[in-house]
Each structure stands twice: as C-alpha cells, then as structure tokens.
Simulated assay, not measured.
Amino acid sequence: MMWQQFLMGILGLMAGFIIASGTVAFIISIGIVPRYAGITRTASRVRWYENCCILGAVAGNFVYLWQGHLPFGTFGLALYGLFAGIYLGSWVIALGEVVDIFAILCRRIGLTRGAPFIIICMAVGKTLGSLLYFYKGWAN
C-alpha cells in the first residue's frame, strides 16, 4: 500500500515536470524571453532567462503541491501579485502579437497613431479590473 502511494507520488511529480516543461517551452517558443532580452539590451543573458523560467515552473509545482503556508506576509503576497501580474500580462501581449491582433485591429479601425497608448490603457484596465475583482470579494 505504501509502495503504491510512493509510486503514484513519483509519477505525479514527473507528470508535473512534463507539464511545466511544456509550458516553459511554449513561453520560450512564442518569443517572450527573446523579446524582453532585446528590449532590455541583455541578449547575452537569454540562456539565464530561460533557466529562470524553468526554475520558476519547477518551484511553482513544489509550492502548489506543498500544503503549508509560506511565511512571507502581506508584503510577500503583494510582491507575488506584482510578479504574477507581469507574467500574465506578458502572456496576453505575446499571444496577441503572435496572432497579430494589434496590427489587424489598428488596420481595421484606421488607427495610425496612438497604438502604444491603447496597449497601456488595456493593461491599466486589466489591472483595475483585477483589483476590483479581489477588493469586492468576487473570487469567493
């Protein structure tokens, strides 16, 4: 009985590593990491960024499986929320760029100036919507 539980635990952990690896490979393949490295002019550190993505996915698996509480307090929660928001925003923008949604939208509505302003407004709207969602307690 204990041997079966141990085997199931190992298989579950391996499956989690596979899913996390696929997620990281997808993030890298859509170009989030190289785009950020190009914007920040740190292209020589792309491999380090990719390793951090993999480490973050593995650490996320362990934190998800661990049933305890992390002793980081309110500041740690706010910091985690900031980084999670940056991560989610990166996904939204990268996926939008992959399908060229912004270029198509700007061409269809005849927008020639102000595209960066529209993108910033979308990000601010998403942030304010998330804050309102959690402030009102709609998550419960």
Rank of each mutant, 00 (worst) to 15 (best):
M1N: 07
W3L: 13
Q4M: 08
Q5E: 15
Q5A: 14
F6K: 11
M8P: 00
I10S: 09
L11H: 04
L11D: 05
G12F: 05
M14H: 00
A15T: 03
A15P: 01
F17T: 04
I18V: 15
A20E: 03
A20D: 08
T23M: 06
T23F: 09
V24G: 01
V24R: 00
V24C: 07
I27L: 13
I27H: 09
I28F: 05
I30E: 08
V33P: 00
P34E: 13
Y36A: 15
A37V: 02
A37P: 00
I39P: 01
T40D: 02
T40I: 05
T42V: 12
T42G: 05
R45H: 14
R45A: 13
R45T: 11
V46P: 03
Y49E: 02
Y49M: 14
E50K: 14
N51V: 12
N51T: 06
C52N: 09
C52T: 13
I54H: 03
L55Y: 10
A57W: 01
V58H: 00
N61C: 11
N61D: 02
N61V: 08
F62C: 14
L65A: 12
Q67G: 09
Q67D: 12
H69F: 10
L70G: 02
P71S: 14
F75Q: 09
F75N: 05
F75S: 11
G76S: 10
G76V: 05
L77N: 09
L77A: 14
L79C: 05
F83C: 12
A84N: 07
A84C: 04
I86T: 08
L88P: 00
G89W: 05
G89I: 05
G89L: 04
W91D: 01
W91I: 15
W91A: 05
W91C: 04
V92E: 02
V92L: 13
V92F: 15
L95K: 01
G96C: 03
G96N: 08
E97S: 07
V98W: 11
V99T: 10
D100L: 12
I101W: 13
I101R: 05
I104T: 14
L105P: 00
R107G: 05
I109P: 00
I109C: 09
G110F: 08
T112F: 06
P116Q: 13
F117I: 14
I118H: 09
I118E: 04
I120Q: 10
I120P: 01
M122C: 10
M122Q: 04
V124E: 02
G125S: 14
T127F: 13
L128N: 02
L128D: 04
G129V: 02
G129W: 06
K136D: 09
G137M: 01
W138F: 15
A139I: 06
A139P: 00
